[in-house]
Write a protein that binds this DNA or RNA. Structure first.
Length: 501
RNA sequence: GGGUCGUUAGCUCAGCCGGUAGAGCAGCGGACUUUUAAUCCGUUGGUCGCCAGUUCGAUCCUGGCACGACCUACCA
């Protein structure tokens, strides 16, 4: 904080210097930052309520209103002026004239700048073009804006600045405001969906002493008083299942996960995950449940299940396809024969030829998955559940009753991206202990994303986890889909960026 | 990590095949009592991302660096 009432001289441009001079002048006669003005209406509510009224109706029954907001447009014309005020709901036009405010108020207004926060009182009327406006009788500067806004017509174009100075993006870009309004509604609709179904919303730790629940590298930190290493969580899964063991048979959590990995248009180091668990259900139930939830969310938020994403359309209300990994590969690449896809040597040769990353020690299932990731995942535009994930890459999922090499697990792909991952939970503590041991071995062998052995979780399982189904849904990616956003940064208010300077 | 492109006034952008820069918006001054990105007249404002090199001379050419966007690879 700088000393009060001591204008600080910065090395800054002329526009800021002029605005600062205006502020200094205001300080000399008034409280420059008053907090006594109270509005009684929001702009778009006024328009909703009064736009249907005729010019004459408004004159016959004068309605006095008080609004406040940021001045985003200004048109001065001698003895009368217009200004457009923007608040959280929209915009409305002010008409300021010597006749109604007196000359001094209008004169002061002429020196107000775009970006200033104003409070206005006046009477609703319609201009000769029929625009609902406020004939101002009282006008107050509530907050002086010292920095000029981005160009009023083009707005903020620089992507970096949009992310770094999101407030400017929000002031100038209606689309951005809409995206985050939709994001809020998406989360709201999801909550409703779970609460209606008797789920309990919970919050589990963000700081884990053993990072678990996913295969990813964690951020690490240190607790001074306890002198212990802590990790920002990569997933809440193991804690949520402890709660199911504790008798919370239907739980969900919407919260942040942190993964110390690459940043891209689809990845932010912290991202929002919905995870939910329901006892006495399995993964097939989850697939139906997910379809219903997405339909609910789309209808609540967009009013339709027809989605356009990057120029292509889909309908979320149509039953989603369900394919095994090899079926999906063959659907898009019919030239692969079933024999080839079950031939280790063939798969390894093919993956090498594709120049892709894979683990040559994987079994058939792991190799098939690598081939799927490389050749098919990005082509799954229509919502598709991929099932039959190999046990070796699913250390927390229940084995299939007929084939112990695969698990009762699915991933949901929409628009070429993984949106959800769900499975029947592994509730056999001895099998879980063995899987952790395998993971620990892989970790020792250099796999930085392999899971740790979590003895407390095994102890919890030994008390008995009821048969349970659980799923995670990437909220950011879902919002990308529902807002037609090409980058995850467009749906996160303050995405991770490199440090400035 | 690799590739492509970018960085010029507060903002949106031109421009210069090497002679140190322009427009619109915003600002300032003036005209204008129903404008709609108001209009009209005048006007202020720039270390052309940073550092080297080549050159008589670099915003422009070369090299390096920084930052960013997009694509690509790994992770959701």
């Amino acid at each position: 904080m700088t000393q009060e009432n001591q204008p600080v001289i910065y090395d800054e441009n002329q526009i800021i210097a002029e605005r600062r001079a205006k502020l200094t002048e205001i300080r000399q006669t008034n409280n420059a930052f008053p907090n006594t003005f109270r509005r009684d209406h929001l702009t778009s509510e006024l328009i909703k309520q009064f736009n249907e009224f005729s010019k004459e109706q408004l004159e016959e029954q004068p309605t006095i209103v008080k609004i406040a907001g940021r001045m985003v447009l200004k048109r001065v014309m001698g003895k009368a002026s217009f200004a457009t005020i923007q608040d959280m709901k929209g915009r409305i036009q002010l008409y300021i004239s010597n006749d109604h405010t007196g000359e001094p108020v209008h004169a002061a207004f002429k020196h107000y700048d775009l970006g200033d926060i104003l409070g206005a009182q006046g009477t609703l009327f319609k201009t000769k073009t029929g625009e609902l406006s406020i004939r101002v009788t009282d006008l107050q500067l509530l907050t002086k804006s010292l920095r000029p806004l981005p160009e009023k017509f083009h707005g903020l174009a620089d992507q970096e600045q949009k992310y770094r100075q999101r407030y400017l993006d929000l002031i100038t870009n209606e689309e951005t405001r809409k995206v985050f309004a939709i994001r809020s509604k998406v989360v709201q609709a999801i909550r409703e969906f779970f609460v209606e179904r008797d789920y309990l919303e919970v919050e589990t730790p963000m700081m884990h002493s053993i990072p678990g629940g996913a295969s990813a590298r964690p951020f690490s930190t240190h607790h001074n008083a306890l002198d212990m290493a802590l990790f920002l969580r990569i997933a809440p899964e193991l804690y949520l299942k402890r709660l199911v063991i504790g008798g919370m048979e239907k739980v969900f959590e919407i919260n942040r996960n942190f993964r110390n990995e690459g940043i891209s248009t689809r990845h932010n180091p912290e991202f929002t995950m919905l995870e939910f668990y329901e006892a006495y259900q399995d993964f097939t139930y989850l697939m139906d449940f997910t379809e219903q939830m997405l339909v609910h969310v789309a209808k609540q938020v967009l009013g339709t299940t027809h989605i356009t994403y990057q120029g292509k359309t889909m309908d979320l209300s149509i039953s989603f396809m369900r394919l095994t990994i090899t079926q999906a590969i063959q659907k898009f690449h019919p030239d692969y024969t079933t024999e080839q896809l079950n031939d280790r040597d063939y798969l390894i040769k093919k993956l090498q030829a594709l120049n892709t990353h894979f683990n040559p020690n994987d079994g058939i299932g792991g190799l098939q998955l690598s081939l799927f990731d490389e050749t098919t995942e990005h082509l799954l535009f229509e919502p598709t559940f991929i099932v039959d994930y190999p046990a070796e890459v699913s250390p927390l999922a229940r084995r299939n009753d007929n084939n112990p090499d695969i698990t009762d697990r699915f991933e949901l792909y929409i628009a070429g991206r993984e949106i959800a991952n769900g499975f029947s939970e592994l509730n056999d503590p001895e099998d879980q202990a063995a899987r952790f041991q395998e993971q620990a071995k892989a970790k020792d062998a250099g796999d930085s994303e392999a899971m740790h052995y979590d003895a407390d979780y095994i102890r919890a399982l030994e008390y008995g986890l009821p048969p349970t189904a659980g799923e995670g849904i990437g909220i950011d990616r879902l919002v990308m889909l529902l807002t037609d956003s090409p980058s995850i940064r467009d749906v996160i208010l303050f995405p991770q960026l490199r440090q400035e300077d």
